[in-house]
Design a protein around this nucleic acid. Structure first.
Lengths: 241, 241
DNA sequence: CGAGCGATTGATCGCCATCAAAGTGGGTGG
DNA sequence: CCACCCACTTTGATGGCGATCAATCGCTCG
């Protein structure tokens, strides 16, 4: 997910409800000025979810929209026999709730302890109606998510297990959310099971592919939840077939 | 793809450039009134593409947006070794060109002889800026495409070949574009190769699965490009695992 | 230190890909 | 009008990648 074009937000007074919000500059609210932001924020509330807890289930009425402020989420869908597909991960600054349907088509859960900024959908829609730049921004967000979803379609439809895992690591490395302080190390907040269900594989296969990349000196497994990318060029070559 | 909520468009004078446009009521331009539509149309032009011809290639600069007026399109991506994934099909009324990038990420080609309404992107964007209801509509379109792409993610990541083919047939049956005059028959404008590349399968597998569904009396293959859905309930049961 | 869960590694299986060949149908030219 | 051609589709035989079944490892927490 790339940085969206954002109009510069004004500095906020310390008393402003969004003062100190780590994601204000990249999130959907980043296009609002100080007064607009204050009005916007009054319509919402902060909520927390521990790792594994649910924001909403598929089939739930889509009563709210959300902005992820810290942590990580997964959006997933279950088939009747328990097979699960994860359609995406969300990181701080990401917007949750793009839909035109009454009911959510996917379940949203916290991958790790997370905090969100929550808004009733009706109020959010009304606010958007009066702020065209927000409407524009929402369209840009939807377009980005569409591009990401179609990339995942290519990955799932035509890539091998090795290519899938290499692509996944490079995708995380590209976004700012999973980069670790040092240079080439990335943080994997999600479990092997989450990775497998995102890539359309089983956990054993993910584990084997990671081990194989390690054996080939393309990566180092610095811990179960962190990976160092040793040779990005060869990783890219692998990822694109 | 479901019908979007459309404000009723006024009847058009016979001299109006969009008079007789078969898709005006469902397309992106459907939210415009007669005068707006005339202004909109002046910025665009009609183009034709024969079956197999390209609208744009992945990597091309995204200079235009399009509205499909007749025929069918596929949007696809090639891996370096020639593997192809089709990310979606477009039918009359569908909008082509949702992207925030300079370059198209996918190739768009005509599945059958097609006609499109073409607009320079800059002019289109300017027009959208002055017509908020159009912006809204674009957002709704993007949200729908996102939902469709994520459905395809689930299909590609977790469904079996049988489930994929059953889901595909039901998807086409749901949209109005492929329904044939009679009740349960649907028209498949695309080749087996297109179907295979959409479902992440090979053409032999698609053919075998269709034959198996026929043998099980769930469908009839009325011709290579048409299928009669005999037992939708069992088809649904198959499609959802 | 032991329990328990997630991750890794190993052995075997099955679905779908691949390789191969025959069938089908639409279009062209004789 | 008919015969041929070529591309697409269907059907058949075999193989490989990733799933499944199974066992061990290793970390965290009580």
């Amino acid at each position: 997910m790339e940085m969206l074009p954002i109009s510069p937000a004004a500095a906020l007074d310390e008393a402003h409800p969004c003062f100190g919000c780590a994601i204000r500059l990249v999130a959907v609210c980043g296009v609002l000025n100080s007064d607009e932001l204050a009005e916007f924020k009054r319509g919402g509330s902060d909520i927390e979810r521990l790792a594994g807890e649910t924001i909403f289930f598929e089939g739930d009425r889509a009563t709210h929209v959300y902005n992820l402020t810290s942590g990580a989420l997964r959006i997933s869908k279950l088939l009747s026999d328990g097979r699960r597909q994860i359609a995406g991960f969300l990181f701080p600054g990401d917007f949750l709730g793009i839909t035109m349907e009454d009911e959510h088509a996917f379940t949203a859960e916290a991958v790790v302890d997370s905090t969100l900024c929550q808004f009733p959908r009706a109020r959010f829609d009304a606010f958007v109606d009066t702020h065209p730049q927000l409407e524009r921004h929402l369209y840009a967000i939807a377009a980005h998510e569409l591009a990401a979803a179609r990339q995942q379609v290519v990955l799932l439809g035509r890539k091998t297990a090795t290519e899938k895992v290499a692509s996944f690591l490079l995708m995380l490395a590209k976004g700012p959310a999973c980069r670790m302080p040092g240079g080439d190390e990335i943080f994997l907040p999600m479990s092997r099971s989450d990775i497998a269900d995102y890539l359309g594989l089983r956990i054993e296969t993910v584990s084997r592919e990671l081990s194989a990349l390690k054996a080939d000196r393309l990566i180092q497994l610095t811990s179960t939840h962190s990976v160092r990318l040793v040779d990005r060029d060869r990783l890219h070559a692998l990822a694109e077939g």
